[in-house]
Amino acid sequence: MQRIINFIIRNQSFLLFLLLFSVSVFFTIQSHSYHKSKFINSANFLSGGIYNSSNSISQYFGLKKENDILLEENNRLKSILFNSESNKASASTIDSISFDSKYRFTSASVIKNSYASSTNMLLIDKGVKDGLKEDFGVITSKGIVGIIEDLSGSYANVISILNTNSSINAQLKTTEHFGTLKWDTKSPQFVQLTDVQKIAPVKIGDTIITGGRSTIFPKGIPIGQVTDFKLDIAEDFYNIEVKLFNDMTNIGHVYVIENIDNEEIMNLLKNDE
């Protein structure tokens, strides 16, 4: 016993090093596995608060650009609104509170964005208090951004599409051929759509949109444009290079999508098993 204690005292710094090193490696491994709540994340009071106050200063520098984006989106929405009214003016009853919509939108602003590491995360200034939960989708007016992973009271951590752990269902706009959206860490402008069937008619310049096969994103949210495609080694599936519509390095305001039917669908799937 004496010897063991002596050994520990003699090597205390080495043992401490070993302990702390394994703790941090444990944290690292945990952060690499998708969908495990992390102990250490920036969605907490301290780091969230500091990022929030630094963002409230830097936001002023982008106001003009932000205005332009909002104006552009307003135009688009207005054109949709007026076009649909003229088409079926008699058929639609104008109702400001509609109960049958499947998705609920919450606006939020990004207070921290990263795109240079291989597992990129964003931090947004809405959290549990605003009704957000895990697995809600995050988009901008131009395209998708990511999926919420961790939450605290008033902050949420978003796993970006520029993250090697993220995999999102996506499809071609013209046909229903779908695949999985991955990122190879090479460039923040390009993501890869893998596992698309060989018979799919892919062309350079085609638009890629989200598929309706997950409960996270509604079908039809734009993602990007095909810039290059080739068959994988087994020559069964296409690997498609997709240029994102979103500039992931410059994201200010985002919308969080809640699928109201999510719970119902999940219950149904559970019953099936």
């Binding site: 702390l20 941090s24 444990f26 690292t28 952060s31 301290l46 780091s47 990263s114 597992t119 951590n157």
Partner: peptide, 10 residues
């Protein structure tokens, strides 16, 4: 904690 990188810096 600030950069959401698990425990790599630690």
């Amino acid at each position: 904690m600030f950069s959401d990188s698990g425990g790599v810096h630690a």
